[in-house]
Design a protein around this nucleic acid. Structure first.
Lengths: 193, 193
DNA sequence: TCATATCTTGAATAAGCATTCAAAAACTAA
DNA sequence: TTAGTTTTTGAATGCTTATTCAAGATATGA
């Protein structure tokens, strides 16, 4: 018996950033070898093939982002303040123009939703998990009486996801940071109204 | 002297749909040959290379979409009604799940904004043109007294673009058509408020 | 210490890719 | 009709790609 030398999470995070920077199609196995430090044989042994590595990386990304969201909201007693901080965090990522701070779920959705049914199913489920987490947030905000209007938490969660996807796409045109912050503020207003 | 046999607009529209379906990286010259009916030599003679064909296709797409928007709004005396029709049109495209009804600008923005500065510049300018067109729409809606609130037309135009980008990304997870229509209706409300 | 099972290594493979080019075809102008 | 110019054609090129595999390295258990 002998166990693998590499740390799977570490390898998946390295693959994640490689895919974020170049997209799936343009990331070569050579890129992945350089990013992960693994030789082709090891990658194929652990993940079947390039696509298997992507799918595993997508799941790792989703876990990491879920944890991050939970941590962020646990730091704010007011759910509404947590939401503001969350949006500010997303805006900051957009403004940074750092390819490693893109949303891999969104990138993959745009690149392969129409081409790979299995990837699409994984991504749809991840989107549903995200939506449920945000839905719970809006339920807490409602309980704390910080919501006007009559929209359901689910509606608001969907609206917020749409807005964040849009914000991240819009950011690729490099608008001024203040514009991005204003857009974020307006989204917060609209979604809590 | 001899003029080219092919119709440039027709070729560019064929290339557009090829790039929409597979993305830039995964569309091979063989795909483009099949889609356009042009042999490699002719493509290279007319557009330099694969990337040149993409850039030309992006510009054609932008022209076509600009014309489409103008036509749609010219059919509605009420600018507000035109906006509602425009959003309904976008939602219908999202619901159709037809890869040929994606937004090529958005697809390219997501795939190559970080990798190709020239493409990014073209796409940013196209986004600015779109924003200006929508800004003019909001000015007309304001003149017609159908706007509440104090947001500037420019703010609203940016917000609408963000929402449409988001809607199109969200659509890749195949939500129910009614959900998409509800999201469209909410966007219309928020942006005119 | 040794045998064994498993992982690691990196060169080899075969397919696919963007691009080039020279020959053939065809339109234009005289 | 004919000469000249440009386009069309599609095979050839050389490079890159994902994937495989057999040899070598190394940890584990006896």
């Amino acid at each position: 018996m002998r166990s693998a030398e590499f740390d799977k999470e570490q390898v998946l995070r390295a693959a994640m950033t490689a895919f974020m920077e170049k997209g799936y199609a343009k990331t070569s196995m050579q890129d992945l070898k350089a990013a992960t430090g693994l030789h082709p044989g090891s990658i194929y042994c652990a993940f079947q093939n390039k696509r298997g590595l992507l799918l595993a990386a997508l799941e790792q990304y989703n876990r990491d982002r879920g944890d991050e969201l939970q941590t962020l909201f646990s730091q704010h007693p007011s759910a509404r303040a947590g939401l503001a901080a969350y949006l500010a965090h997303v805006v900051a990522e957009c403004v940074s123009c750092d390819p490693q701070k893109l949303c891999l779920t969104q990138k993959a959705l745009n690149e392969l939703a129409e081409q790979d049914a299995e990837a699409q199913a994984i991504l749809s489920e991840q989107c549903a998990m995200w939506r449920n987490a945000l839905c719970a947030v809006f339920e807490r905000i409602a309980e704390q009486g910080e919501l006007t209007g009559t929209r359901s938490p689910l509606d608001r969660a969907r609206g917020l996801i749409v807005s964040i996807y849009g914000l991240r796409t819009f950011a690729h045109t490099h608008p001024e940071p203040q514009v991005m912050r204003d857009l974020g503020a307006q989204i917060l207003k609209d979604v809590c109204q």
